[in-house]
Design a protein around this nucleic acid. Structure first.
Lengths: 315, 315
DNA sequence: ACCGCCATATTGTCCAATACAAACATATAA
DNA sequence: TTATATGTTTGTATTGGACAATATGGCGGT
């Protein structure tokens, strides 16, 4: 016999809050000491007990911090203001470009949870447009729109998960079915290693890049999401990769992204190129020397240039 | 110019160790005080610095604990003994039923990084064996073997990533190609929601379960890995799921797993069943009342029983 | 007005030692 | 043998302090 009201009747411990918001326990304690928020009640044993409201506000604060705000500046506001700031900031970062006419059809299918129909339609579109165009003209804008709808609260988190899964299925299937053209008996070049850093949970960007590369006849090997830095280095060395491509979502912490890129650059042989793709803030400033930054649409051109550049040596 | 030896020349901080072994920072400190292991060196600022050997032993200890041993009993042994104990215990637990004869072929392909060949061979095996047998008799033992090889240090982490990616590609492709049998015009039952909790990074188990379900004609919807608890609840409600399946790897913290399962049970409508799958220790004890625990091979039977059980009401 | 540099403020993470509930093991009684 | 009580182990919570890394903001110089 439990209350099945939509709001959570169950208060959270500090561990729960860490899991649900991504804010470390130690940080939660120090915030309480410094900013007086969150100030949880205590149970009979003196342990912190957080309300659902506090957890909600913490989520908002965390999102704003990841967007570049500083804790001390935002933690004092109420949930409503924070919500508004998040929406505004998200809109500013991605200037809603020419929405594909059929975009809303797909989003509608998602909102009504018709995932099979969505997959069918996506799959169809891919066959018509070709993999590369499908990714650049449809999947990418779709993903961007989705992210906005999510920060705006118009789309439930789980609906974004569903959407992401469907997209992944269609794209993976397409990539798999591309014949690995063994060019003149030798493995095709460039050899590209794809991965995301440990903080990055979003795998769509990686997959989009892989699709574009595969369509251009490069040799792709993906480590998947959340690969530790030493593992990426190991892999790149062992596989004799020409290029290491990393994908970043706007949500990831720009500071950590910049650091990681610099360290990766230091640990990899100089001959290996590091390419970065995604809409993260770090790619505009911090990553400067460490990596070459590409938009999705430019990746193909990048490959062509690489081939030209290394034409003499690679032969 | 950095050292390029294959073993990690870079020692780990306490945060790194927590991420790489799954042992919490606080636990690491208390172990050091109580058991005198691990006893890391200190850097110039007095902060702990762990060697690769210590991390390796910690992984073994963690594995044995997850297998049911108690920390105080095993932490004093050397890596070699621990290794032996882990193998023995693993063998006892899973009486390595008829190990597929070709298992080593696949592992060999992985170690030599021939991923295309691996994918081709896996894909072939799947066509011969059928999806369900492929998963139960080949993928599952392969994954288990892989996990052992990883804790044993015989397999680089990135090689496990590569392997996992290849398996995912093949399985996803297979699942996608299964026609969603719209049984007599109505959506097939049971309707199953699949997900893993936020702590869980391993997505293979989830995919294996989905494959088995799909082969049995159930209606699967996957949220993917690392879904927050409230999102799972939202999704299950909105999709009117009959069953929520969660997958767990042995690495996840059993206590947190148990707590999460109990909380999920409290938040979901009573009519929805919670199924748990995987080799996590929590599923043997803590999860008792909250969820029904299935091995991969039993999932098919579980579906059959569900259909029988709900035959009267569901019509 | 713009850019580089330095002092100051902010902020996350680490440390230490202690405490205690929950889980486990063992012994005792029914 | 099964149930209950007692003791031990073990993970996670607590506090307050310290400090390195980073961002902010003012200043002087092109």
């Amino acid at each position: 016999m439990n209350t099945s009201s939509p709001s959570q009747p169950v208060p959270s411990t500090i561990s729960d809050v860490e899991r649900d918001t991504g804010v470390a326990k130690e940080t939660l304690r120090v915030w309480e000491r410094r900013y007086d928020f969150p100030r949880p009640q205590r149970d009979a044993f003196g342990e912190r007990v957080y309300t659902a409201d506090q957890v909600h506000k913490l989520r908002l604060v965390k999102r704003l911090i990841d967007l570049g705000y500083r804790p001390g500046k935002v933690i004092q506001f109420g949930s409503a203001e924070l919500q508004a700031m998040a929406e505004q900031a998200a809109g500013r970062q991605q200037p809603v470009s020419a929405p594909h006419p059929e975009l809303h059809t797909y989003i509608e299918l998602c909102k009504t949870h018709q995932m099979e129909a969505l997959r069918r339609k996506l799959s169809q579109a891919m066959l018509v447009m070709g993999l590369k165009n499908f990714v650049i003209e449809l999947v990418a804008p779709l993903t961007a729109h989705l992210g906005e709808a999510w920060t705006g609260g118009q789309l439930a988190v789980f609906e974004e998960h569903l959407f992401s899964e469907s997209l992944q299925i269609v794209m993976r299937s397409a990539i798999f079915s591309i014949p690995q053209a063994h060019h003149h008996g030798a493995a095709p070049r460039p050899r590209i290693l794809l991965a995301t850093l440990p903080q990055e949970r979003q795998g769509l960007g990686l997959l989009m890049a892989e699709a574009v590369f595969a369509a251009d006849g490069a040799h792709c090997t993906s480590l998947g999401v959340q690969a530790a830095l030493p593992d990426i280095v190991d892999a790149a060395r062992s596989l004799h990769s020409d290029i290491v491509l990393l994908s970043f979502s706007p949500l990831a912490n720009p500071r950590q992204v910049g650091d990681a890129l610099k360290e990766l650059r230091a640990r990899l042989p100089e001959a290996m190129e590091i390419w970065a793709s995604g809409s993260n803030a770090a790619l505009r400033k911090r990553a400067a020397g460490a990596a070459q930054v590409y938009g999705l649409a430019d990746l193909g051109k990048g490959i062509a240039e690489w081939r030209q550049r290394t034409h003499g040596q690679a032969a």
